[in-house]
């Protein structure tokens, strides 16, 4: 049975640099004020503006903009793309982390660099390469045209571009985590007779669950919010190949500012949810780490 040690929440308080050797209070307050002012100006101001503009024509106009058919289909498409891209990258991420973290082989560093590649590529170029592959004059363009398969300027292309862009997120999160955890627990499980999948489900997965969740949250946020890459591949066909970010652009370019900001506010709320979930997962991660590395005296252990 698992033993539950007395839970001690991890501290996020700043380390105590004592009064004796730190800056004077005047300096501290000045620096804090400047930093907060900078953040307020850079981050908070645009956020406030989004909601202000979104509601500038009143709450009815706001709701109407969100419930408008094109907006709804854009939302649906956004969800669809994310629901395909994220699971694919989940499988990829876990596979990559498994072979990199649990085994030794030549070319490992090259593999890690390759996994990082999409991070280094501009979103527009990320879309462009799929146009070059599947567009009218692309490698497979002719073949696709002959078989009446549309990838570019259609949903499949957008899925591909989004998958490309978000591919490193989960892998990058899992690789260092699993490397740090080592192979001992899995080896112990094998020695005890567990099979490969059993080992993964019962031993590895519980250990990586917070990192995995974290990667999923980031991957999903990027998949839903991606703009540049999808813009190149989509063709901007209203009601068919528009995601929410693209819809924001269309409305803005048509000077429907309030509606544009209304849709943007939905995306902003999504960003808030992402941040909140992220913070929650980080907190849980820190708690789990603290419990693992603490020497809790036996008297404080409570058998679960």
């Amino acid at each position: 049975m698992a033993t539950v040690a007395v839970p001690r929440p991890a501290t996020t308080a700043p380390r105590a640099i004592t009064r004796a050797t730190g800056e004077s209070p005047a300096v501290r307050w000045t620096l804090t004020a400047i930093a907060l002012a900078f953040l307020a100006f850079t981050l908070v101001l645009p956020l406030v503006l989004v909601f202000h503009e979104a509601l500038s024509k009143g709450i009815e106009a706001y709701l109407a903009a969100i419930r408008e058919p094109d907006a709804l289909s854009a939302a649906k498409l956004t969800l669809l793309i994310a629901s395909i891209a994220v699971p694919i990258n989940l499988v990829f991420g876990i596979s990559a982390a498994w072979c990199i973290a649990k085994f030794e082989f030549r070319g490992k560093n090259l593999l890690i660099t390759l996994i990082d590649l999409p991070f280094a590529v501009s979103p527009v170029i990320s879309g462009m390469i799929f146009v070059l592959l599947f567009g009218m004059h692309g490698w497979f363009g002719g073949w696709l045209f002959d078989h009446d398969v549309k990838i570019i300027f259609a949903v499949p292309g957008m899925v591909l571009a989004t998958t490309f862009i978000t591919s490193p997120f989960i892998a990058r999160e899992l690789i260092p985590l699993m490397q740090e955890q080592g192979t001992e627990e899995e080896e112990a499980a094998i020695v005890l007779g567990a099979g490969g999948w059993q080992t993964f489900w019962r031993v590895t997965l519980p250990n990586i669950k917070w990192g995995l969740l974290y990667g999923l949250i980031l991957c999903n946020a990027r998949a839903m919010g991606e703009f540049g890459a999808v813009s190149v591949v989509s063709g901007h066909i209203r009601g068919e190949t528009n995601t929410l970010p693209l819809h924001v652009e269309i409305l803005y370019n048509e000077y429907a500012f309030a509606a544009s900001f209304a849709v943007a506010s939905v995306l902003t709320l999504l960003a808030f949810v992402t941040l909140a979930l992220k913070t929650l997962v980080e907190w849980q991660q820190r708690r789990a780490e603290a419990e693992d590395t603490e020497d809790v005296p036996p008297a404080e252990r409570i058998a679960a």
Binding site: L43, P46, L47, L49, V50, P123, L218, A221, M224, G225, E226, F227, G228, L244, P245, L246, V248, E249, Y252, S260, F261, A264, L267, T268, A271, F272, T274, L275, K278
Partner: peptide, 12 residues
């Protein structure tokens, strides 16, 4: 800025 879609930042 990590979490917010770039288009939203752009118009804001």
């Amino acid at each position: 800025p990590f979490a917010l879609p770039t288009a939203v930042a752009g118009i804001a």
